[in-house]
Design a protein around this nucleic acid. Structure first.
Ligand code: MN
Ligand code: MN
Ligand code: ZN
Ligand code: ZN
Lengths: 145, 145
DNA sequence: TTTAAAAATGGACTCTGTCAAGTATTTGCA
DNA sequence: TGCAAATACTTGACAGAGTCCATTTTTAAA
């Protein structure tokens, strides 16, 4: 019912080997970059052009089948966990990104106080910090100085 | 008391013509890019290198004198409205960015539900939408088709 | 099977931003 | 005020991420 090819057809997106492979790669490794997706796809179907990866990721994003996250200073990340408006926690040191639910509730910050006439369609929340590994790392450096 | 040069001295940052000019540019046009700041500075003091602009913006950001906003897919924006944790509303079509207060209150979404061991130091909130001008634009296109 | 539309490829190119070496300014101090 | 050391600025090369575009290949409808 919701195998990848079927999903594409439901959205009137022609099924191609590249699209299926990219979908699998995104699903296998959430929060991965276009580059690492390309690598994984190559391991699977042998070859794919960089442009095709970007095109496919763009089409899938536009159709809501995947979600694009763009933390400042890092390349865009992709995941197939969509429709639940979860947020992300990004390590400033190594970039490792994990899912996080918002403490505020179902529609966190979805309403801005005064929309300035804009039609708002998304509230993006990124938490910045230091991951456990990088905290250990910096602690040990601090104590050895 | 809080003229730019004095501000720099208070933070032990050497005062230079470039720094003063960049501060003025950021103050004059909130939410502007490094490039447009460079242009404005050139109109004022004649010349500045791209690198100097980035260096100055970096130093000022590190010292909390200005704030850097990096909306996905757009170059970084700078403003001197700091210390009040306001958010931003960015137009997907033209990139125009405006200030917005968070409806949740003083510390909007600052606490993630479960920090995954990360030490969180900042919550960044960006609202995405379509600005009034771009809405008119797309409306008129839709009705003429 | 044919064919028109759509997608993928390959390669050049753009846009932000950074690095590194050399030159010029700033500032603390004599 | 003048000097020296520390700090900034300039210039030009470089890098990462993503886009553009002309050509070839694939898809899917007839
Ligand atoms: Mn996620
Ligand atoms: Mn602002
Ligand atoms: Zn980390
Ligand atoms: Zn707009």
């Amino acid at each position: 019912m919701s195998d990848p090819a079927e999903l594409l057809r439901e959205h009137n997106i022609p099924v191609t080997a590249q699209r299926l492979a990219v979908m699998k790669a995104v699903s296998d490794r959430p929060h991965s970059t276009a580059e690492s997706i390309a690598e994984e796809v190559r391991a699977g179907i042998g070859t794919i052009s960089r442009q095709a990866v970007y095109n496919v990721l763009g089409v899938l994003s536009d159709n809501g089948l995947i979600r694009r996250i763009q933390p400042a200073g890092l390349p865009a990340l992709y995941e197939d966990r969509v429709g639940d408006n979860h947020h992300h926690l990004v390590c400033r040191t190594c970039g490792k990104t994990v899912d996080v639910d918002c403490a505020v509730g179902e529609t966190p910050c979805l309403t801005a106080a005064g929309d300035a006439g804009y039609e708002i369609d998304e509230a993006e929340v990124i938490h910045w910090g230091t991951c456990p590994e990088c905290r250990k790392e910096s602690d040990s450096k601090a104590s050895s100085s």
